[in-house]
Design a protein around this nucleic acid. Structure first.
Lengths: 154, 154
DNA sequence: GGTTATTGCTCAGTATGCTGATTATCAGTA
DNA sequence: TACTGATAATCAGCATACTGAGCAATAACC
């Protein structure tokens, strides 16, 4: 019988599980309370001021129903703002707050440290190769999940 | 600024997301209703008859509080049985049912097909290399999550 | 202009995955 | 035997991630 270790799906689950644990531990050590998902959303809002929720979801491949709760929590923590769009009254425009900007800046070393720890079993070359192969597999499977990656159309 | 695509954590999340979607789609096409997590638990129960929940959790790196709900659903679907252990009245012994065995047998082609689809962007050699690197990174990070992989001690 | 289709967001419901606490039981020791 | 510590399972609570439905507003078409 096939072992779990021969199942890419199981390896994907496990690697993700570890990566989340490492991220949370590093961020907490640095004195912050932010999940990987919240971090990616906040960084993307900062890089794309005024974007709407669907665009944000597309840029980081989150489900549209998931993003609502993520933003709720960012707003509740005072890191982001959500306000009605003037151009499209269905949409919400997202902005990072000063507090959000400060948090992003101060949290960066912990985030980078986390990325290193996730790969600590691999040489630098192996780490690069792992990322390359993941990117390639993800690109081929992008349309297979409900929340594919999408470019922003500005 | 570092792009999401340079963050192993983000790639881990995305690859996992796609792998789950592919698994569910293949299994549903085959006429079954079983999640990747439920599949791994059921297969492990079959391979280790009579094991308790903590041991099961260790074998597939699930959190002990997560496994309760997973088994609830397997039992509710009639695929597994949970009964008090005679040796340790705190523990529950897990068994696969005939229906569970039938399901596992019939679902196998869909599961294998799913594993292939997840890697469809990669050559066979690249797929092997991706799995090798994931295994290596996971082994180095095993103790970093709350639910590390554990051998059964029989 | 009016009808239809599409889009942005939200909600209810379900399934993982975790933190931290509690209960029942077991194992080791004084 | 009584006490102490560890262990198996569960629970409440929170955060992702999804399905499918619904509402409001916009876009596309006639």
């Amino acid at each position: 019988m096939k072992d779990n270790n021969d199942m890419p799906g199981h390896l994907a689950r496990r690697f993700h599980q570890i990566s989340v644990a490492v991220f949370l531990a590093e961020v907490e050590d640095a004195g912050f309370d932010l999940t990987p998902v919240q971090y990616a959303a906040l960084a993307t809002i900062k890089a794309n001021p005024g974007l709407d929720q669907v665009t944000l979801a597309g840029l980081i491949a989150y489900d549209r129903t998931t993003i609502t709760g993520v933003i709720d929590r960012l707003v509740q923590k005072g890191l982001a703002e959500r306000r009605p769009s003037s151009r499209d009254r269905r949409a919400r425009e997202l902005e990072i707050t000063d507090e959000g900007r400060r948090t992003l800046r101060k949290i960066t070393p912990a985030v980078e440290s986390a990325q290193r720890i996730m790969l600590r079993g691999l040489s630098a070359k192996e780490g690069e190769e792992l990322m390359r192969l993941l990117r390639k597999a993800i690109a081929a499977g992008n349309e297979l999940s409900r929340a594919p990656l999408r470019d922003a159309q500005l």
